[in-house]
Write a protein that binds this DNA or RNA. Structure first.
Lengths: 97, 97
DNA sequence: ATAATATTTAGCGAATCTGCTAATCGTCTC
DNA sequence: GAGACGATTAGCAGATTCGCTAAATATTAT
């Protein structure tokens, strides 16, 4: 990953994590085995389904979820390694000055 | 820290980190010894000073910077421990399901 | 084919964010 | 005190975000 790619990944991840619903989606998918359909995810939120769909799109764009079509369902799978960009950024603050 | 406080801290931190300029400010302050004046920080950005002032305000509101007035200067000091809220959140993804 | 199911896209309105310039405030110096 | 300095506040314009409802798409079942 080039520095520019790393920076872009960091920006995408940080932007995606800025909304509580999107953080919640990642946690839910993680604790339900790493993958869920759009319907299963949407059922766990109070907001309308299209709203959740858009959150899912943001997470896919950030590389945090991978989309797989299975029949008329769409499975969203967590890509937890994508969070590493943020962990590497946070690690700077553990380094000595 | 109560669960509600932890959640609020996480939201504030994630929101603050969403903008690249604010992430940059935190890094700069860290690597310049942990504290800098508003002017020193603003001088390192292309945007107008008031714009930087607002970013600083967001970071203070998130608890990531602490403000100290010294004469006509204002010193912003990094509160790196505040990033822990985010690290604890990220740690969930390292736990087994 | 038709209907039902799973999900997304389109598009609107309110709220928030981000940049700017101009004006203001408190402090230091002469 | 008068002005210079360090920094913030006020207020505006454009862009983005986020929720919604309604309409469309694609797949499965009858």
């Amino acid at each position: 990953m080039t520095p520019a790619e790393e920076l872009a990944a960091l920006q995408a991840v940080c932007g995606a994590l800025a909304h509580p619903a999107r953080r919640q989606i990642l946690l839910i998918v993680h604790f339900r085995g790493g993958a869920m359909t759009a319907g299963e995810i949407a059922a766990r939120f109070d907001c309308a389904w299209p709203t959740t769909t858009r959150h899912l799109r943001v997470l896919v764009a950030a590389g945090l979820l991978a989309l797989e079509r299975r029949g008329r369902e769409r499975r969203y799978a967590l890509v937890a390694e994508r969070l590493d960009a943020l962990e590497r950024w946070l690690a700077w603050f553990h380094r000595a000055i």
